[in-house]
Design a binder for these strands. Structure first.
Lengths: 205, 205
DNA sequence: ACCTGAACACCGTTCAAGT
DNA sequence: ACCTGAACACCGTTCAAGT
């Protein structure tokens, strides 16, 4: 019977979860859907768009309003949701990073909006609130790409060595994710109370 | 006459600069060096290693000691050098990001070290100083990947529209790069004077 | 030691033609 | 409207064999 776009995305997500982003090719996706590779181009414009759609699938649990009045709590919650979503799929962080960079994810702007509003509530001048939001997103994506590659690497080669393996890498201690996030939040607090032209930013250019 | 590894890297950098990372393929590189593709595998183990070597070539002007006593100044200088190096080559930010993620760049650890020392001088407990350094690197890479893709995009489609084109995107105003950096530096100042277990990081997990 | 030739196992994308 | 068949123009990597 008929193939729909949502079937394409669903099967693509399945391949991602089971085999990773390197195996998520148009030809393989077509094969597993029992169609020709060319058929996919009726449903998606190109591979980038497909990856963007899969990225939005990955991000689905991470979007939606965050009910909390405190801007710090909203920021932290949004970041934790984002990271959790990325870690829920094989190579999820890498996929979303790439789709964010290529502007093919529809969900990232939503998350960015949420963080921008939080930054405004922190007192950051709105001209810079989006910049603060982007800075946070760069952090969460960068951190999680690192973390996930390490997690996946020693989930593959592991199974036997029950020693340390996790606690030696700097991105995997007690609450490493929270540390960088706290750094950013503290920075926003400072920017919130001392809006413009502080010494450290004056010195640039 | 004989082909050396440094010739391979030099030609690869040339292709990167003139045509971008998408055209930097093993086959094309071989063709422009007047050898067979297989010949390259005598000099490099695989494409990842090659890209890592090119990334280190890009980063060459960004490494080396930063002479400044103030940790803020050292941090800012290191970040500006890094960004300038990335912007000096077509797709430089994307290439270095990828090589950093795959652990194939020998220069990134050096830059990380410099930033880690600066964080320690800021008073950040050394257990977290490397995390602060990584957070800064995630920011510079993420920001510059964004910036460069926009710069390259309207350097291509431009040439005629002499209107705004640059000042409308959030990553290209007066000193956007400095803002995110200042955010991180302010955060480090706070962590420096108030070392451990502040409210905002306690709330995670 | 260094390189060629040839193969292996793939890619993304397009498009006339079919139903 | 939706899909096939077939082509176009490529990939990264390996490896026996040559010099």
């Amino acid at each position: 019977m008929q193939l729909h776009k949502r079937d394409v995305i669903r099967k693509a997500t399945e391949i991602l979860d089971n085999f990773g982003i390197a195996d998520l090719t148009m030809r393989r996706l077509a094969r597993e859907l029992d169609v020709t590779a060319g058929a996919l181009y009726w449903h998606v414009a190109n591979k980038q768009e497909l990856l963007g759609a899969v990225a939005d699938e990955v991000l689905r649990p991470a979007v939606g309003p965050v009910s909390a009045e405190d801007w710090r709590e909203r920021t932290v919650t949004a970041c934790i949701r984002l990271r959790d979503a990325l870690l829920s799929h094989t190579d999820g962080a890498e996929l979303v990073s790439a789709s964010f960079a290529s502007g093919q994810s529809a969900s990232m702007p939503q998350i960015l909006n949420l963080l921008t509003t939080a930054a405004e509530d922190a007192g950051v001048p709105q001209a810079q609130a989006e910049l603060a939001a982007r800075t946070i997103v760069y952090y969460v994506l960068g951190f999680t790409v690192d973390e996930q590659s390490r997690l996946q690497w020693d989930a593959a080669g592991a199974a036997l060595p029950p020693e340390q393996s996790m606690l030696d890498s700097p991105a995997c201690q007690p609450d490493t994710f929270g540390f960088g996030l706290a750094l950013l939040i503290d920075g926003m607090s400072v920017r919130g109370s001392r809006p413009m032209g502080s010494p450290s930013e004056r010195r640039l250019n």
